[in-house]
Design a protein around this nucleic acid. Sequence first.
DNA 1: ATATAACAGTTGACTTTACAACTGTTATAT
DNA 2: ATATAACAGTTGTAAAGTCAACTGTTATAT
Lengths: 152, 152
Amino acid sequence: MPFNSVNRFEDAEHEALMGVWWSGVLLRQIARRFFRDQTVAESQFNVLMALRYAERALSQQDLSERLLVDKSNLTGLIDGLMKRGFVRRFREKRDRRFYRLKLTGEGAEFLEKLEPAYLELVHGIMNEFTPEERTRLTEYMVRLQRRMEQWK
Amino acid sequence: MPFNSVNRFEDAEHEALMGVWWSGVLLRQIARRFFRDQTVAESQFNVLMALRYAERALSQQDLSERLLVDKSNLTGLIDGLMKRGFVRRFREKRDRRFYRLKLTGEGAEFLEKLEPAYLELVHGIMNEFTPEERTRLTEYMVRLQRRMEQWK
DNA sequence: ATATAACAGTTGACTTTACAACTGTTATAT
DNA sequence: ATATAACAGTTGTAAAGTCAACTGTTATAT
């Protein structure tokens, strides 16, 4: 789905979707570099954040669904986070098919250290918009996501 | 950069950025599946579209910049498209460092066959919005991208 | 005129991701 | 009670991407 500039389609719907597309591409690029400097992969950060703000202990399957990543990837991702001491797996006794994943103290601490720089980045980008615009943008994105869910 | 639902940050800027982020993730997912069914990789489609709608013959370097993909990927990507007969490389006589890439008749034809389904998908998603909303959304995305360019 | 820079493309190592096939565990149906 | 489904996680393969180092070509500087 290309096209920031030239677009002979002259199709307003296409143009709008391309806008979202390219914003996503740029955002990915910025995030990758940011997290590399912070010595985490973006995918690992996503896992840590999901665990931190989850309302309950999550399984790898849960993470797979929340992060929209294939469950097979969670195996290695969690392995890596365990090696760094950020996450632990707890076998569930009632149902030995899955683990409950928990953030360790080190994991939480690591996230806290990261947070200022992370928020600075986020705000540095988003203060492009006024509060009203932000609200409207958020609303648009929610609707767009709901619409796209239909294609899953 | 996670979080569609739970977000204890209570941070409107973060929320808005996450909206863009998740929309991008979903869009990638939908696109990947769509193009798989159409027997092209999304990355190949992007190249074909870029060549088709370019104002002049592009080099691999040009494509790299337009598609925001490392130039090293273009080698294999173009190789693949040449194998399918969709693209040709022409050595530039004046400057033998680069190729001029051109879409073949087969390439153009392939794109044309794809276009209806592609546009149907795009419209199916974007008719979530009224024309005024689309305009505003496009405007937001343009501003967001310009802002994000600063971090490149 | 020649050494040095810059440029386009390629290659190889590595990471990330998706997908399909597999193991082991639990739930369901007959 | 047992066969079948469904489920969670793991493994292996392949595609796609980044990055750094390399080749060959052209531009620049002294």
